[in-house]
Amino acid sequence: METQTEIRSLWDSLLLWFNEEAVGIVFQIVGILLILIVGKILISLLKKWLTKSMGKSKKLNELMQKLILKIVAAVAWILLLVVILGQIGVNLAPIIAGLGVTGFILGFAFQETLGNLLAGVMIALNSPFRIGDYVEIGSISGSVRDMDMMSVTLATPDNKRVIMANKLIWGNAITNYSFTETRRVELGASIAYDSDVNKAKEILWDIINSYPEVLPEPKPMIEVIKLNDSSVDLVVRPWTKPGDYWTVYFRFQQEVLEKFRDAGLEIPFPQIDVHTPDAKQA
Rank of each mutant, 00 (worst) to 15 (best):
E217W: 03
R184T: 05
S190L: 06
L204W: 08
G171E: 14
K201W: 12
M221C: 11
I222R: 03
A155W: 01
E186M: 06
G171R: 13
I225C: 03
V152P: 11
W170R: 11
R183S: 13
G171P: 10
M164V: 12
K241V: 08
V214L: 11
S190N: 09
G188S: 14
Y193D: 10
I191N: 01
K167V: 10
G188M: 07
I203H: 15
T240W: 01
S230E: 05
W170S: 03
N209K: 12
V185H: 03
K160G: 02
K226M: 07
K199D: 03
K201G: 07
L227M: 11
N176C: 13
T180V: 09
V232H: 04
K219P: 11
I208G: 02
G188T: 14
I222V: 07
D233W: 00
V214S: 00
V214R: 11
S190D: 15
S190H: 08
E181L: 10
V236L: 09
M164G: 10
K199C: 07
E213R: 00
T182K: 10
N228L: 12
N176G: 13
I208A: 03
V152M: 11
R161P: 00
S210L: 06
R237M: 13
S178P: 02
E186Q: 09
D233V: 04
N166S: 05
L187K: 01
T156M: 04
K199R: 15
F179A: 15
P212M: 03
D229W: 07
I222T: 00
M221T: 08
S210F: 06
R184K: 10
A189F: 01
L215S: 00
P216Q: 04
E202R: 07
V232A: 03
P212I: 09
S178D: 14
G188D: 14
R237W: 06
V197Q: 08
I203A: 13
P216M: 02
N228H: 08
E186V: 09
T180R: 03
K199S: 07
V162K: 00
T182Y: 03
P157N: 11
W239M: 02
D206S: 15
K160H: 07
A200P: 02
L215A: 03
I222Y: 01
V235K: 06
S210C: 02
Y177G: 03
K199G: 05
V162N: 01
S230I: 10
Y211M: 15
W239C: 00
P238N: 08
Y193I: 09
G171T: 12
S190A: 13
I169R: 01
T175E: 05
